[in-house]
Amino acid sequence: MRYIVVGGGHISQFILRTIASSDRKAVITIIERSQEKATVTAKQFNAEPLWGDLENPKILEKANISICDLFIASTEIDALNIRLCEAAKRVYGVPFVIGVVNNPLNSEIIKKAGADIVLDPIGLALRILELKVKRYGCISILKEDECGFNFSILKFKDSTSIVKNENIKIILIRNGKPAEDDVVARGDLLLAIGSGKEFNEAVKKMLKE
């Protein structure tokens, strides 16, 4: 696959590591403002470096964005990532666009601009924190609008029946281990995977919301 990664900072380093180790045939172009940063980073990952004004569409064209399979905007400036995702998706029709947000509040905005997937490291970390501190309710670990399906963890204050339908798959965790039961008890966790309206309705019903 052909990849373009814009930004050579901390998050980009890990994105590039993941691409390089997961796709041995990856053709990667790194675009950075600084020539030195672009060159040094590209060398690490056997990628092609490009540098210059990230606002200028010419640099994306120079990176052959029209034949790119996966575009990732991961600079430290959310507003720039939003505009880059918008250009990649709406102007150049890149099949798969990933936008990084440094501030979780920008997730919706970058999604609307054209990101197929939003990488939101702080938001994800906060969900894990929520899992630890929330006594009961639904903790959404992965959201449908981010990756096509929901992965939620449910904590209960009262026992309740497990709701089943075609759009939700559930694993009951009791005392830290998977268990079989049709009823959850206080302290149990439910791992729920699914999508669509039925998923949300099943979750609401179990939480008695």
Partner: peptide, 8 residues
């Protein structure tokens, strides 16, 4: 239009 500061 709203955009949030990249770093709060």
């Amino acid at each position: 239009h709203i955009v949030y500061q990249s770093d709060l």
